[in-house]
Design a protein around this nucleic acid. Sequence first.
DNA 1: CAACAGTCTTTGCTTGCGCAACCTTCGTAA
DNA 2: TTACGAAGGTTGCGCAAGCAAAGACTGTTG
Lengths: 154, 154
Amino acid sequence: MSELKPGELRAWRAFLDAQASVMRQLEADLLAADGMTLAEFDVLIQLWFAAGVRLRMTELSERVRLTPSGITRLVDRLARTGLVRRGRCASDRRGTWAILTSAGRQRVDKVRPIHLRSVRRHFASRLSADQLQALTCALERLAPAVPLRVSSAI
Amino acid sequence: MSELKPGELRAWRAFLDAQASVMRQLEADLLAADGMTLAEFDVLIQLWFAAGVRLRMTELSERVRLTPSGITRLVDRLARTGLVRRGRCASDRRGTWAILTSAGRQRVDKVRPIHLRSVRRHFASRLSADQLQALTCALERLAPAVPLRVSSAI
DNA sequence: CAACAGTCTTTGCTTGCGCAACCTTCGTAA
DNA sequence: TTACGAAGGTTGCGCAAGCAAAGACTGTTG
């Protein structure tokens, strides 16, 4: 058999559409309200949740779903605007910490409500509790579980 | 209330993770098997399904979920490799058709099985019929229905 | 029939990201 | 100890895509 069954096809379309639609709206909301990118916010929030408001670059790249080079550049930008700084890692001298500054923390405090509202509006509030549950169950089969991920952009 | 409920948060994470994971794998599969981009393939397949194997640029941009400028460039590339050609639109002289060439058709015939297998492997086969159904139902609430969309990348 | 607001497409510009190559450091094995 | 493969991070490079503005055309309204 070479074709997808109609149900599979429909699910696949829905998957692609939902993804594009939701992400675009979140990006737009955040940009309009605060001039911040979703990726930037994601870095900030990951650090915000992390113990010591810091994370190793590699760890950060996994949580934010970017390649190492992508994260390097993104942290560069955030460092340039003073929201994040780098720190040398004592236990492994190859390593680098990305550390949320106090300016970064303040920024998160400001932006997070905006983003929460956006997630609720474009995602959570559109689904019943049952649907949410079913959705989670299905989606979690699609992505290999990554341990200890606090969130991505809550 | 300002926080997301735990269930909502978990669903949200799953949504982001599934998206990143699945799309990356599809992209990688297609690239490895045929050197083709997902976006390129999507254009080809949209045209393949369309009446007259042609679509107006605007219509195409909606189906492929790119901005007009993005589609212009993407069609440029596909035209350069002879898989698509442009045609002037008689009924509206502002318009342009993107038309699948016979080389393009052949390419679709070759690549589609690869892509189908990939979609099945990373998406459809991981879900039971019930899950597929529930997933569809939930996801369709997240994206405003776009009429008459044959598919995106089946 | 003119004027004009809206639509379709393209172009200039900018940016963000991935890949591959590189350097440093680590840890293990000879 | 030295050697060496692997891991962490950064860099050069190329490219794809978005925004905004421009050009061509439409059809509607005065």
